[in-house]
Write a protein that binds this DNA or RNA. Sequence first.
DNA 1: GTCGATTGTGTAACCGATTACACACAATAT
DNA 2: ATATTGTGTGTAATCGGTTACACAATCGAC
Lengths: 327, 327
Amino acid sequence: MTTIKDVAKHAGVSVATVSRYLNKKGYISEEAKKNIETSIKQLNYRPNQVARSLSTKRMQTIGLIVPDIMNPFFPEIARAIEDTALKEGYTVILCNSDEQAHKERQYIETLKQKYIAGFIIATNQLEREYYAGLNVPLVLLDRITDGKAPSVSSHNKNGAVLGTDYLVSCGVKEIACISGPQNVVPAYERTQGFLKAVEGLNIKTHVVESPFHFKEAEKTAFDLLSAHPGIDGIFAGSDVIAIGVQRAIHRLGLSVPDDIQIVGYDGISLGEMVTPSLTTVDQNIYQLGETAVKMLLKIIEGQELDKEHVMIAPSLIVRDSTKEKSK
Amino acid sequence: MTTIKDVAKHAGVSVATVSRYLNKKGYISEEAKKNIETSIKQLNYRPNQVARSLSTKRMQTIGLIVPDIMNPFFPEIARAIEDTALKEGYTVILCNSDEQAHKERQYIETLKQKYIAGFIIATNQLEREYYAGLNVPLVLLDRITDGKAPSVSSHNKNGAVLGTDYLVSCGVKEIACISGPQNVVPAYERTQGFLKAVEGLNIKTHVVESPFHFKEAEKTAFDLLSAHPGIDGIFAGSDVIAIGVQRAIHRLGLSVPDDIQIVGYDGISLGEMVTPSLTTVDQNIYQLGETAVKMLLKIIEGQELDKEHVMIAPSLIVRDSTKEKSK
DNA sequence: GTCGATTGTGTAACCGATTACACACAATAT
DNA sequence: ATATTGTGTGTAATCGGTTACACAATCGAC
C-alpha cells in the first residue's frame, strides 16, 4: 500500500501539502497540484481511511439500525440507504437489533469505538434520553417523532386515510383495521388515519392490534373474522400483516377480493408476489431512505437542515386484493 | 473518551502493560492485572478500534457482499452472519452489488482502505483471479466453488434429488424444472440433481431457465405451461421462482396443488407466507451463514481449516403446494 | 557464586493520516 | 520605506493504540 509519504516524496513536496491537496484546504500552487495529481495516479494511491479517522475522529461509515431484517420492509429501505450512501462515499453498517434494547445498545457502543459518522435508526427500543446523551449525529427513520431528533417518515395518517377511503369506495359494508402495535408510532398514526376516514360513515368498524409479524397477524385475523363473519373489508397496518390476513381468509374458505377486500400499507415488492396481489398504500420506500441519508450527511457536515421533520407523501397502488365498485 | 494512557496512569503502570493485558500477550503480574482491571472498570474504558486497527492493519469488521438484497434469501443469510459475527466481536458491513461487477469492485476497494478483516462473498460477478490477487481472507458463500478459495454451500445436487424424488412420489406424470441461470453454480448443480432424479423414470420432463426473479419466473412458467398443458409437477430452482410459478398457475386458472404441484428450493420464510404455502428443500440458511463466519474467522486468525469446502445437508419441508399420493 | 532462563515492566518507535505553527516571499497599502 | 495581507510550503505534534527492545529482578542449576 502506498502512503501519503510515498506520494509526497514522488511529487517532491511535503506530506502536509499532499494532505492539503486531498482535503482541498489551504493554498497550493498549480505546480504542486499537478505534481501531486500525477504522483497519485502513478502510484495508484488511495488514502488510508483508518489513519484519517484516527485524526479526524470520524469514519466515512454510517450505522443503520433496524428492528427486524427479515421483515421485507427493512431490506428495501436498507437498499435505498446503502445506494445513496455509497454515492456520497459512505459505507453502511447494517445492524439488526431483533427488537432487543441490549443488542441495539451493544451496536451503538461498538460502532462508537469505530468512530462511526452517524446513525439512522429505525427502532424504538431505546429511550430518547439515551440517544440524546450519545452526542453522535443521527436521524430517526419511520419510528419515533418526538421533536428532539430529526426524523423522516411516511405521512402515516394521510396514507391511512387514502387507503381507507379507497376501501370504502370499493363498497365494503363492515370494515376492520388490523393495526400494528399501538406503542409503535407509525402504527398508531395509521390507526388514527383509519378512524378519521371512517368517522361519521355509516359503516360498522372494528380495530384490533397485531404484531408486525405474519403468523400473529394470521391468527389475529382468523379469530376476528370467525367472530365477525360480516366483515368484508380490511385495512392492514402493514403489508406483512395484510399477507397474514390473506392467509387467514384463505383458511376460512373465503376469497379475496370477492368475499373480503384488503388494503395494505408499505408498498414492499412482496405485495406483487402474493396471489392475489395486494392493493396497498405505498410509502415510497426508496425516497424515504434517500432522504434519511441526505439529512444525516447534512448533520454530519454541520449544515443546517431545511426541515427537522420530513414527511414523505404516500400514494395508493391498486392491485387485485380490492375491486372497484363499478366493475 | 478515556484512552489507554488514562488507564495506565490510573493503574500506576505503563501503556505497554495495559496493552499487554488487553491483548493477553506477554507477562503481567497478578497485582498489575488487578489494578488494570479495576481502572478499566472505574474509567469505563473501551479500546479505540480505529487506533488499534492502524497498528494491526486489521479492523474487527467483515464485509458481506450479496448480489441482491431484495431477494429474501439474502436478508436471511445476512441475519445469520451478523448474529454470529456480533457474538465473536465483529461487525458486518452489508454490501449489495446489484449483480454489477463495478459496484462489487468499488466495495472491495473501499473496504480494503478501511482495513476490513475479511469478506464473505455471495456473488459471482468478479473473476477468480481478481479475488486471488486481493490478499484478504475470504469465504465464498453459496456461489462459486472452484477449489481456490474456501467455500460453504448447500449440497445442491442432493437437495435437488430430495425435492424431485418427493415430487415424483406425489404422483406427478409430467414434470418441469424451472431452474435459475445455469452460469450460477448452485442453479446448475440443482438442475443436475433434478436430471439425476428423473433419469430412467418413465416421466416426461422439461428443463427451462429463468433469472432468480419473481416476474421473469412467472413469465417463463406461464409460457411453458401454456405450451405444455400436461405438466402437473414443477421443481423450481429457488423459492422465489416457485412463487412466480404459483402466480402463473393462478393466472392460467389452475390450482396448486390439485392441478400442478410445486417444490421450491431455499427454505426462506416467505415460503410459509404465500398461499398455498410452499413445499421446499430447506438449505438450512442459518447454519450456512454461521459456518461461513466461523470459517472466515479461522482464516483471519491464521488457523487451519478442517475442511476447505463445506457442504450443508439440505432437508425437505412439506407444506401445501404438494399433496401426498396416499391422500 | 556465576549462568541462563523466566518473569515483569517501561521507553520509544511506529501505523498513516491531519493540522497548528512557523517561516518565506510577493503584492499592496500607508 | 515600512507595514500588512495573501500565498505557498515544511516541520513536527497529534490521534490512540501495538510492539520491538532494553533492562531488572528472581530462581533453580551446576
